[in-house]
Amino acid sequence: MKKDTKAEISENLNGEHKNASSKIDAIKELIFGENIQEYNEEFEALKKDILHKKNELQELISSVESELLQSIDSLSTDINIRVTELENTVNDKLDDLGDKKADRKLLSELFIKLGEKIAE
């Protein structure tokens, strides 16, 4: 008998709980009725708009990211070309200087030999 009583009590409590919440919902509906529906519709519209804007922003971010990566690649290639050109120019100048110094050295040797021949 105790088991049956406990079951009845829990059913009554559950039933009362369900009835109480449905009563509260009914009171809310009476008081706020149309306003809540309007608010829900507005919130849904705002949600859709926000999601749409979010998707647009993500697409824009992706587009800008790909453009930036492409620009960085292009700039990197341009810089590499310019650095290579500068290296070649510097190497050419160093070769010219080396040749000029060799010529001076050769000239000095020739002048020494010429001086020795004159001295004889």
Results as ranks from 00 to 15, higher is better:
K117I: 02
I36D: 10
S62H: 05
S76G: 10
L69Y: 07
K18M: 11
Q37R: 13
L97H: 15
S10F: 06
K101T: 06
I27L: 12
T5G: 09
I118G: 05
N91R: 13
N88Q: 15
S66L: 11
G15K: 03
S108P: 00
L57I: 05
L75N: 09
G15Y: 03
A20P: 01
I31Q: 10
N19A: 07
A26K: 13
K18E: 07
I72S: 01
D92V: 05
E42A: 05
L60K: 04
E109T: 06
V64N: 02
L30F: 11
N91M: 06
N12C: 12
E109M: 06
A26R: 10
I72G: 01
H52C: 10
K53R: 12
L107R: 13
N88E: 15
E34R: 13
E87I: 15
K100Y: 00
A7D: 05
Y39H: 14
I79E: 08
L30M: 08
E8T: 09
K93V: 13
L60C: 08
K28H: 13
D96S: 05
I81N: 07
E38Q: 13
G98A: 04
D99H: 04
K100T: 04
L13E: 11
E59Y: 00
D103P: 01
I31N: 08
S76I: 03
Q70S: 11
I36A: 08
K101S: 08
D73L: 01
S62N: 14
N88A: 15
L114C: 10
K6L: 07
R82F: 03
V90G: 04
N14R: 11
E59G: 03
F111E: 15
L51E: 13
I81R: 10
L69R: 09
M1R: 15
